[in-house]
Amino acid sequence: MGRIVIFSATSGIARAVAEEFLAQGEELVLTGRSKESLDAVARDLQVLSGKAIPCFVWDVLGFAEHERLFRELIAVHDISGLFMAAGIQIPQKECDAEPAKTLLTFNTNLNGPVAVMTLFAQHFKQTNSGFISCVSSVAGDRGRGSITAYASSKAGLSAHLQGLANRLKNTGVLIQCVKPGYVRTPMTAGLRSLLIVSPRWAARDIVNAIRKKREVVYTPFFWKYIMLVIRAIPEPLFRKLGL
């Protein structure tokens, strides 16, 4: 049994998912941009699980390095799955003021993850096994005025995952698109909502869904119905709601 790569392991959801995987007896490799933060997360998981956890510095924005790092990783470890959690949310106001921030949003949420996942997808396709579970967002289900850049980057990511799942449908590879609602992580820091849940809640849903080989996961589950309604609202009315 191989190791699961947790990509951007310092993110709130990734940490909880890593914890959940470890509780199920899985072996992990953590990747992320900052060695210091990565080591701190690895230590935390090591205290929890009693297992040493290898870390691998890998920046989702380092496009020129992806292929080399991927080769290095698979040369050392037998990889059985990828959990992709890279993502960023910059307030839309800042994106409007500085086009570079819109670009950063797309590079972090869409281009980077897609580049990395392409490498893993090819690898898993050859071995006819493995899974890719990637954190998208309920925000990607409809274009939104208030968070245009974030929502559209996640929409692109969801569409990419859907396409990848279609392409690999007759293989043993699972491609999963995770659409979380509000989860209490550094990304949503300070957000007050009755609908907000702990990262552990989301992590359990995700790990269960991987076991059940589900291709789209809303977490918590009720977002599936909320988004069903939101998608069904006619555009003129949606515009008035100013979401």
């Binding site: 997360v41 935390d44 820091a189």
Partner: peptide, 12 residues
């Protein structure tokens, strides 16, 4: 300065 995300174990 909210410490909610300074929440990692270091050793036991």
């Amino acid at each position: 300065l909210n410490t909610s995300y300074l929440d990692r174990f270091i050793s036991f």
